[in-house]
């Protein structure tokens, strides 16, 4: 409980710090955003108009306060380029990216954990070392290249076994759920395989570190076989660590997801951010980056709380129940 409160307080502090970081990084911009946005042959009057519309003529503390105030009221501003509100922009793009990330994580976990267990527990040492090599090499494949190879194998129209679409998202979006889901399969497998190799490595390492632990030996002494003890006790004791790894994988997977979105031509958050950063759409970039980073901070918080829930030793302060041992 004490940890929870402490963690929540620091979550708020970290959010505030993050907003300052985002704000400051975007203000040390060399040159004038307004004139960049107005174009090369704009009149000074037009530049001034853009500046005042975006609030750039005010002092930095005031701009910061305005932005933060807007965020607290759910008003993230309006994109200077598209004219849409930042909130609706994020919403429509996240509708592709979030399902993609979740699918990728599912692929990663459903490959990484069983294969990692096998890499640690397989009877033959040869199988174990082959699986270990697969895990290392798989984690070293750049997502971009992995995606290309998969397109060359399975991409409809281009691949050797062209069975899956490899370009674009259906125009109807999630109103055509089947088509939408199918268009995400190949991208999700791409990022899922690469991230899955990482999870496989960690699962293997966790289990191997449990191999000569007394706890596993005790479970075996109670009547479990080695395999049972490793899977039921070793894996359970590694669960807290594996949740942390899965959380970090989830966070870092977003790089691969953005690459894959661009490769598979999916209009997700990656495309939106790259576009806005390229256009130096200050207001939009500021809110978008802050919101995404805040999302990952929240994710980190959840993973931390889960980590604590999974390990009773971290729960409450250690206390001896029933007094000291009597001789």
């Amino acid at each position: 409980m004490r940890y929870l409160i402490w963690r929540l307080i620091w979550f708020a502090v970290a959010l505030l710090g993050l907003s300052l970081l985002v704000f400051a990084a975007l203000r040390i911009l060399p040159g004038d955003v307004a004139s960049v946005m107005a174009g090369t042959n704009a009149t000074p009057a037009r530049v001034a108009a853009i500046r005042s519309r975006m609030g750039l003529d005010r002092s930095y503390p005031q701009q910061y306060a305005d932005w933060l105030g807007g965020l607290l009221h759910g008003n993230m501003g309006v994109s200077a380029i598209s004219g849409r509100t930042v909130a609706s922009q994020i919403g429509s793009h996240a509708a592709i990216t979030l399902p993609l990330i979740v699918l990728s994580l599912l692929v990663a976990l459903s490959i990484g954990i069983p294969m990692g267990c096998q890499a640690a527990l397989a009877g033959s040492p040869r199988v174990r070392s082959v699986l270990h090599t697969i895990a290392i090499v798989g984690g070293a494949v750049p997502a971009l290249w992995g995606g290309l190879l998969l397109i060359m194998l399975f991409g409809r129209g281009v691949g050797l076994i062209g069975i899956l679409p490899s370009q674009g998202f259906p125009d109807a979006g999630w109103h055509a759920p089947r088509a939408a889901l199918i268009s995400l399969i190949l991208p999700a497998i791409t990022t899922g395989l690469v991230a899955g190799a990482g999870i496989m490595r960690y699962t293997r390492a966790c289990l191997i570190s449990m191999e000569d632990s007394d706890t596993v030996a005790m479970a075996m002494a109670c009547g479990m076989t080695r395999r049972q003890a490793m899977l039921r006790v070793g894996l359970r004791l590694s669960a807290a660590q594996l949740v942390s790894v899965a959380g970090l994988t989830f966070a870092q997977m977003i790089t691969g997801v953005m690459v894959v979105e661009s490769l598979f031509n999916l209009p997700g958050l990656g495309a939106m951010l790259i576009n806005d950063v390229g256009n130096r759409d200050l207001i939009a970039v500021q809110s978008e980056l802050f919101l995404l980073a805040a999302f990952f901070l929240l994710l980190g918080l959840l993973v931390d709380l889960m980590h604590h829930a999974l390990d009773p030793r971290l729960g409450e302060r250690t206390q001896h129940v029933g007094g000291e041992e009597h001789a």
């Binding site: 632990s213 007394d214 706890t215 030996a217 005790m218 479970a219 075996m220 002494a221 109670c222 009547g223 479990m224 076989t225 049972q228 006790v233 359970r236 004791l237 999974l310 390990d311 009773p312 030793r313």
Partner: peptide
Amino acid sequence: AAFAALRGRYVGLVFQNPGAALNPV
């Protein structure tokens, strides 16, 4: 499997360091 069938039924083990051996969860 044959050892496991006997462990915990025919033969019981008491470990040196219970703090490390007992399953913490």
